[in-house]
């Protein structure tokens, strides 16, 4: 009971009504690390109604080199699972945005010979870019990102590079 009261209290702070939650966005994310792999995947974003004027959203993303550099190649398989929060600066059709990602990366070296090499690491990155909303329920986000955590050669996954660019196509559904 106490938990429910807390949720209602937090929701009321943001003028948020769970039964009238605003939008769900589903889409594709295309990502290219600077001088490293191309990783693509799917993304899901949720924009709660009237939370900071509909300008803040939360989501989850899965991108992998399986759907990019690894296709027909010996590139290392790496899967990235991210939770993220995006803030767009205005509600107009074109707007700058910033985004914070946190998650994990998992690599598959395809041989027991490399069991001594780390096959997972945490991820933390920042992005800055822009969003364009079409008249139809389609949005495009493009941004430049920076991984704050990378391997130092002795730990982590060496193919996680600092700079990346990404483009996300989102289709919106009203809930």
């Amino acid at each position: 009971m106490k938990g429910i009261s807390t949720v209602i209290f937090i929701c009321s702070l943001f003028n948020y009504h769970p039964f009238f939650a605003d939008e769900l966005h589903i889409g594709l994310r295309l990502q290219q690390s600077w001088n490293m792999y191309n990783e693509n995947g799917i993304t899901l974003e949720f924009t709660p109604n009237k939370l900071l004027n509909d300008q803040l959203s939360f989501g989850a993303t899965y991108v992998s080199s399986r759907f990019g550099s690894t296709i027909n190649s010996n590139a290392i398989i790496q899967d990235n699972i991210l939770l993220h929060s995006t803030y767009v600066f205005s509600s107009s059709s074109i707007s700058p945005l910033v985004r914070l990602n946190a998650g994990y990366c998992f690599a598959d070296y395809e041989s027991a010979l490399f069991d001594d090499i780390d096959a997972s690491m945490s991820l933390l990155s920042l992005e800055a870019g822009a969003r364009y909303a079409f008249d139809i329920p389609l949005k495009v986000q493009a941004s430049l990102g920076y991984n704050l955590i990378t391997s130092d050669g002795s730990s982590g996954i060496g193919t996680v590079y600092p700079l990346f660019i990404q483009c996300t196509l989102l289709w919106s559904f009203s809930l």
Partner: peptide, 18 residues
């Protein structure tokens, strides 16, 4: 070397697989 501060060890994976 596994703890080399110049070359990342993932280089060995890429060479071996490639």
């Amino acid at each position: 070397s596994l703890y080399d501060d110049v070359v990342d060890r993932v280089s060995a994976v890429m060479l071996y697989n490639g």
